[in-house]
Write a protein that binds this DNA or RNA. Structure first.
Lengths: 252, 252
DNA sequence: CGGGCTCTTGATACGTGTCAATGTTGGTGG
DNA sequence: CCACCAACATTGACACGTATCAAGAGCCCG
């Protein structure tokens, strides 16, 4: 049973007008919008690795923006097969589906220690009434998230294991770059090969063997939770890379 | 090369206040919202089977609501593998991604003769400024579409071919029921086995053989473009059916 | 009444899964 | 600070689901 009580509100909080995310490659807001966001914000919280932020089958009263750390979301079938749907990094909004739908269809879990900005779902409609630009930004986020899932779906449907892993790792790397998490051609990734398997619709064993092939071929290496992109051009080529995937994003 | 010029504006048009969709199991609007929608609407058009409504890699100036007929959307990789991402039925909005993103990442093509309501993308921001309820509805649609792709992704990642086909056919059937396209336990579906294969990440041959097994087992039959649900309960059981998938939807 | 899509079926190949055993790593408590 | 334990990673052998190839049958539309 996963821990749900290890989330602690923190005393000290950021001023939205000096949001730490404004340093990232994200779209920024006007003064007035920032003031609205500040009023919409309930507080901040810390979540430990493994904490459940949103639970499949439940209703979620809170929405979050990731300030620090990573999370992932997944669905579980009635036996215990599961499919990981996506990952959230600093700047990402968690709970768009929670915001507008009744019952959550997936679980969101912290991959590492996280710091989050918390919003009150029940006040969301005020945002739609008063802030057309932010409303548009929310819709933009929803559409962009769907675009991502579309690409992920294409991977599972039509890319081989080798192509699929190359594509996904390159995606994580490029997305992480927006949040300034990369260090040259390296990236610290708090995920296991089991999680990779559940992300890409493959078995643990096959992930392991295919990672070895990718390393042998000089494309990339993933060891001790460090992803190392060795040959980005070759990665793009073998994975049928899509340049339109990664974009600067708005945030709340 | 697919035909793009076979779309014809029709002379006679529906009055939004007597929208034919209002008879479906969809969420309806207030008088004022309907008036806004009427002003947002450019006109109506007809599309022949095979017509391209939106093209991958291009920018789309128009948004559509399906009045009649079906469409599907897909991505193509640089070799010619393709992945079908979803289907649109009467009441569905086509072009949410087109509405807010720059370049389309998928193609939308008519599966049958269609009748569509056409909106002007460039006036979308007025909707966000003036119609908070409709803005919310748009975001709801985006979130619901993502939920659907999430489930589809789970199928490709973690359901076997047999489960996957059962799940998808049941989904199409239940979604079609909302648009009153079903006839008892039967549904006319203008799709081929090749399209089913590209939807479910399988080969044509394997689709064919698995359909045969499903029929032999008394679950469902799909012949001459007619889907026949023989044992809905068994279908739900083998496919790990998700009851939260199908909901009444708002529309524009 | 031809010609091109579809659908069907059998034979065979191959990618990926499963099983099982061993090695490695990192965290925890004595 | 070390010993231990539990995850996690690695590897080989083998099984199985699904793809590919190939050929023929059915169907629709001009």
């Amino acid at each position: 049973m996963r821990n749900e009580t290890n989330m602690v509100k923190v005393k000290w909080q950021h001023d939205c007008h000096a949001c730490p995310l404004s340093n990232l490659r994200l779209r920024n807001h006007s003064q007035e919008e920032t003031t609205f966001i500040a009023s919409f914000k309930i507080g901040e919280m810390t979540a430990q690795k493994g904490a459940i932020l949103v639970r499949q089958g439940a209703r979620s009263p809170h929405l979050y923006t990731v300030l620090d750390g990573m999370a992932y979301r997944y669905k579980t079938l009635d036996d215990d097969r599961r499919q990981i749907l996506g990952y959230a990094m600093p700047g990402d909004f968690i709970g768009l589906q929670a915001a507008v739908l009744d019952e959550m269809q997936h679980t969101v879990e912290a991959l590492s220690a996280m710091q989050l900005c918390v919003f009150d779902r029940s006040r969301l409609f005020e945002l739609f009434k008063e802030q057309p630009s932010l409303s548009f930004a929310l819709t933009w986020l929803a559409a962009t998230d769907e675009k991502l899932v579309d690409e992920h779906l294409t991977s599972l449907g039509r890319r081989s294991a080798y192509e699929r892993i190359a594509f996904f790792m390159l995606y994580l790397f490029e997305r992480a770059r927006l949040s300034r998490l990369t260090d040259g051609d390296k990236l610290h990734l708090p995920i296991t090969q089991m999680q990779l398997a559940d992300t890409l619709g493959l078995s643990l064993v096959h992930i392991n063997k295919t990672l070895k092939r990718l390393k042998r071929d000089g494309l990339m290496a993933f060891q001790n939770h460090v992803l190392h992109i060795l040959d980005p051009e070759a990665m793009k080529e073998v994975s049928f890379w899509n340049d339109g995937l990664i974009e600067d994003r708005p945030y709340l």
